[in-house]
């Protein structure tokens, strides 16, 4: 198929976690997520002190949808892309940046995290993750899922969706 799947595993995955972790410390943000453009979470980290995050699936889907819409808007105006996006409320904020063509970086921060730092280190992390995503795309792992996977999955379909 045309769009390559971004798969993180092993050393690359650990590096992604490392980058997210470091970014949390540098910015004081609560949560850092690497998301693919389809809205799936590839890797995520939470600050030790942070309260329980909202559902990550919903976060990732909405951020990916939003980013897709923003990119479409940029195209309409003849731009290749728009810069990073920041949403800020009274207490909470979001920082979203592109990590290459296939992934997005999301930082969720509160009022204690200085916006300047979030943007500075957010940008830096996005660049590092872009590099990483490109490596991952260039070296897709071999998937050893066979007919047994399909058979077992089918049994679960019966269980969840009924016979």
């Amino acid at each position: 198929m045309v769009e390559p799947s971004l798969v993180l595993y092993g050393a690359l995955y650990d590096r992604a976690l490392g980058i997210l972790d470091e970014t949390l410390r540098e910015t004081g943000a609560r949560y850092a997520l690497l998301i693919d453009r389809k809205g799936f979470v590839l890797a995520h980290k939470e600050a030790l002190w942070a309260p329980k995050p909202p559902p990550l699936d919903s976060l990732a889907t909405l951020v990916a949808g939003n980013a897709a819409a923003t990119q479409a808007l940029a195209k309409l105006l003849g731009e290749v892309r728009f810069q990073e996006v920041v949403h800020q409320g009274e207490r909470m904020g979001l920082y979203v940046d592109e990590a290459g063509d296939h992934a997005l970086l999301l930082l969720v921060f509160d009022e204690n995290a200085p916006l300047g730092k979030v943007k500075l280190y957010g940008k830096r992390a996005a660049e590092a993750l872009t590099q990483l995503a490109e490596e991952a795309i260039a070296n897709p792992p071999k998937l050893n899922l066979d007919t047994q996977y399909r058979e077992e999955a089918k049994a679960l379909l019966d269980e969840l969706f009924g016979n």
């Binding site: 799947s5 993180l8 595993y9 995955y13």
Partner: peptide, 15 residues
């Protein structure tokens, strides 16, 4: 194409 997360051992499908 499905998204596979080996680290978390997840396979995701979009319908």
């Amino acid at each position: 194409m499905s998204t596979i997360n080996f680290a978390n051992r997840e396979i995701n499908f979009k319908i």
